[in-house]
């Protein structure tokens, strides 16, 4: 606890790197996952059901396996080896994007599909076509989508398996909260591990509080379906 209170520089560098990597990953996942989920919600094509099942299943991807796959892609002999991204924060962001994008896409699909059903006749009456309705639906589902993004952030910040494989847990470079906790615990440096653990739990609680605050506001304003 003393470490937190004293504002230990190394500790805060680790926390900041964690936040930077995970926030970036969520941002990229939002840009990819939200339009993808919305398009999936309003489009009709053969095999759509299958794609939805696949995206839902990808929500539960084991982080270690994602780490392994991203590692293989980025390693020197891998297809993206020339980029020399392995053991960099960028590699960690890529791994987290792979983990978070399905979550964002699947939750977006669910939210938008419900909203699209409710809006369908009204929007068609106003002359808005199916695909043209996507921006309207995304905007009107904004509060529910924030919840989806926070869920994705929760997954990213707490994840250890993928980032330790592709990041390598290098001191001052790719060491984030979760990987540090794993390392310091095995080394017996419980003080640092506990301090980081406390911060991580604090972030988890804050994110959850934010989620419930947002959904409470959504409910209050009649912005959700419940």
């Amino acid at each position: 606890m003393l470490l937190i209170l004293q504002g230990d520089a190394e500790l805060w560098a680790i926390v900041l790197l964690s936040l930077r990597v995970s926030l970036m990953a969520v941002l990229i996942s939002a840009v990819i996952g939200m339009p993808l989920g919305a398009a999936l919600a309003v489009s009709r094509f053969p095999g759509r059901r299958g794609v939805i099942v696949l995206v839902n299943a990808l929500m539960g991807l084991p982080p270690v396996v994602v780490g392994l796959l991203v590692y293989l892609m980025l390693s020197r002999s891998g297809p993206l080896g020339v980029l020399q991204l392995l053991y960099t924060p960028t590699a960690m962001i890529i791994a987290q994007v792979v983990l978070v994008t399905p979550i964002v896409a699947a939750l977006t699909r669910q939210v938008i599909e419900m909203l699209a059903e409710e809006y369908s006749e009204q929007l068609r009456s106003l002359g808005v076509s199916r695909l043209a309705s996507v921006p309207t639906l995304l905007w009107d589902a904004r509060l529910a989508l924030v919840t989806a993004l926070l869920a994705g952030f929760g997954r990213a910040i707490a994840e250890v398996g993928a980032v330790i494989i592709v990041g390598g847990n290098i001191n001052h470079v790719t060491r984030v909260m979760t990987t540090t906790i794993a390392l310091e615990t095995s080394r017996g440096n419980l003080a640092l591990a506990l301090a980081l653990g406390a911060i991580l739990i604090g972030i988890a609680v804050a994110v959850n509080a934010l989620v419930s605050a947002v959904s409470l506001r959504a409910e209050h304003e009649g912005l959700t379906h419940a």
């Binding site: 409710e118 006749e121 009204q122 009456s125 002359g127 309207t136 009107d140 589902a141 009649g222 912005l223």
Partner: peptide
């Protein structure tokens, strides 16, 4: 057609209001 529909409007039994 689209040109004709654009000159029509409809109000539903349950008003569907945008979340705005």
């Amino acid at each position: 057609g689209p040109a004709q529909k654009a000159r029509q409007a409809m109000v539903f039994q349950q008003p569907v209001l945008l979340r705005r």
